[in-house]
């Protein structure tokens, strides 16, 4: 009986490990520290283009497709951190961004208000080297607020050393997408 129980437990454990492996790996392959590559990026905000902005991504896998993308941007005025929670193919997640200017909007008067909740839905298909995120958030503008819908496409290079994030948003009129390129640190 004891032998049977141990055997059953081992089968179950093996099953659980096997079932969780794809989820872990799909987020883990993106995990790590990423340094912004100004030269390879295109049509990004003026802050980034001018080189005034330092930009890093830290992606932490939390297992089962869950991950946290920590956007760290810095100017001579200081560092700004925004942590985005994602769940690949899971339910919509929420994150809270600190109040402040949004550098993706270049030097337009667009900011995140206090305690602003960001809703995000992350989807990954069969290609595990890419995923898409749809973000919903409200920004402050001079006449009040505006609801932004933003689509981000994350693409990992075959060697896993380059991460390309292509971004579009509903507020931008007839414009090419912004392409942010990052190189894996270390």
């Amino acid at each position: 009986m004891k032998k049977y129980l141990i055997h059953s437990w081992m089968i179950m454990a093996a099953f659980l490990v096997a079932a969780s492996l794809p989820s872990v790996s799909r987020a883990q392959s993106f995990a790590g520290n990423w340094n912004y590559d100004n030269k390879a990026s295109k049509n990004v905000g003026a802050f980034f283009e001018s080189g005034e902005m330092r930009y890093m991504l830290k992606i932490v896998s939390e297992g089962n497709g869950k991950m946290v993308i920590d956007h760290r941007t810095g100017t001579e005025a200081g560092w700004n951190t925004k942590k985005l929670n994602l769940d690949l193919n899971g339910p919509e997640t929420t994150s809270t961004f600190p109040r402040g200017d949004l550098y993706r909007f270049s030097f337009e008067a667009v900011a995140i208000g206090p305690d602003q909740t960001i809703r995000a839905k992350a989807v990954q298909g069969s290609n595990k080297s890419e995923f898409d995120v749809t973000l919903h958030y409200t920004v402050l503008v001079s006449q009040g607020t505006y609801n932004i819908v933003q689509h981000d496409h994350y693409q990992l290079s075959p060697d896993g050393k380059t991460l390309t994030v292509t971004e579009t948003r509903n507020s931008r009129v007839e414009d090419e997408p912004a392409v942010y390129v990052f190189q894996r640190a270390n």
Binding site: N43, F47, S106, V141, Y146, S171, V173
Partner: peptide
């Protein structure tokens, strides 16, 4: 704010975006 690196096309897209959001 117009930094020196912004092209005419980019700046126009910025202004049109502001006009849409306001």
């Amino acid at each position: 704010y117009l930094p020196p690196t912004r092209t005419v096309k980019e700046a126009d897209a910025d202004l049109e975006e502001l006009a849409k959001m306001n």
